[in-house]
């Protein structure tokens, strides 16, 4: 069953097309991610679907309702976390969640949510005393408390350290286990890959690829990546002449060789190193990831 349906969505700010003919649909019970660099149009799409922003053209249905025509009908059935939104500074964590719980017909129990986002020992602390990560978790908790059928999260883990980020992934997967649909945005490749059932990769307001992370990777890469870090080797012109390599991408801190035949490439590479009298001791082999997909499709990297 489709719970979010976006067709040919556009939104302009002056001459800038923030969203440019974007279409996607989200099925009930999945974790759907929009992955893209800053300014790609993720938040704009997000805010149009949550009924916060008017679109220029296209169609949007959330739970069968047009959020522009009947925003209150949509808002009552979803939970929302907004990028960079703060909450009342002088309220405690507990008071904040009770406040937001009061806006919904059938909220989840406050205590349950507090435990779930790991704020139990901070429940009586005022928001102004929380760390950045704790504030971020509180804002996700606000989205969860609604008990909405779809939980919207705009960059939920931005500003968290890696450990806190993984903890929050656990909470989001928990939501899925409760039967909720999760619609999130992120500019972390790893987050999209590990957390999302399906991902839409967005650039300049358009979808450049859509599918499960594994589908996207295998569709675009049957090759392995080999990254050379050594400066004396990574700018070597002869790298471009290796016969088993299909593509060479020079990046700032390393050079990537793509190859369908890893053994052959390593053999060639060590021969090259020997000829140049360089010790081949600093290279990495990895499978392609969503970052590579983005790079391949746009020629740029997600992170600046």
């Amino acid at each position: 069953m489709t719970v979010i349906e976006v067709k040919n969505l556009t939104k302009k700010y002056g001459n800038l097309k923030a969203v440019d003919g974007l279409s996607l649909s989200v099925a009930k019970g999945e974790i759907f991610g929009m992955l893209g660099p800053n300014g790609a149009g993720k938040s704009t799409t997000f805010e149009i679907t949550t009924g916060l922003l008017h679109r220029d053209s296209g169609n949007v249905k959330v739970l069968g309702v047009d959020p522009q025509k009947r925003p209150e009908a949509v808002k009552a059935r979803i939970g929302v976390q907004l990028q960079a939104a703060q909450t009342f500074r002088k309220l405690t964590v507990m008071e904040t969640l009770k406040l937001f719980a009061g806006f919904y017909l059938n909220p989840l129990p406050v205590n349950e949510i507090i435990t779930q986002v790991d704020l139990a020992e901070k429940q009586h602390s005022r928001v102004e005393t929380l760390s950045g990560g704790q504030k971020q978790r509180l804002s996700v908790a606000i989205a969860m408390i609604s008990n909405g059928e779809i939980i919207f999260l705009d960059e939920p883990t931005t500003g968290l350290d890696p450990q806190a980020r993984r903890d929050l992934w656990g909470s989001i997967i928990e939501l899925k286990n409760l039967g909720k649909t999760v619609f999130l945005t992120t500019h972390f490749m790893e987050e999209a890959q590990k957390l999302c059932d399906r991902v839409a990769i967005i650039d300049y307001g358009r979808i450049v690829a859509l599918g499960s992370p594994q589908e996207l990777i295998t569709a675009h890469f049957h090759e392995m990546s080999l990254e050379i870090v050594q400066p004396e080797l990574r700018n070597e012109p002869k790298l471009w002449e290796l016969t088993s390599v299909t593509e060479v991408i020079a990046l700032n801190e390393h050079t990537v060789l793509r190859t369908p035949n890893l053994t052959a490439t390593i053999r060639e590479l060590s021969a090259l190193a020997k000829a140049l009298t360089i010790n081949l001791d600093d290279f990495r082999i990895r499978q392609a990831n969503l970052e590579d997909v983005f790079l391949k499709l746009t020629g740029r990297r997600i992170k600046p």
Partner: peptide, 14 residues
């Protein structure tokens, strides 16, 4: 400025 109005706007609170 703190986007709290916006956050309240995303809830069913009229």
């Amino acid at each position: 400025v703190a986007k709290i109005l916006k956050l309240l706007g995303a809830t069913p609170l009229p």
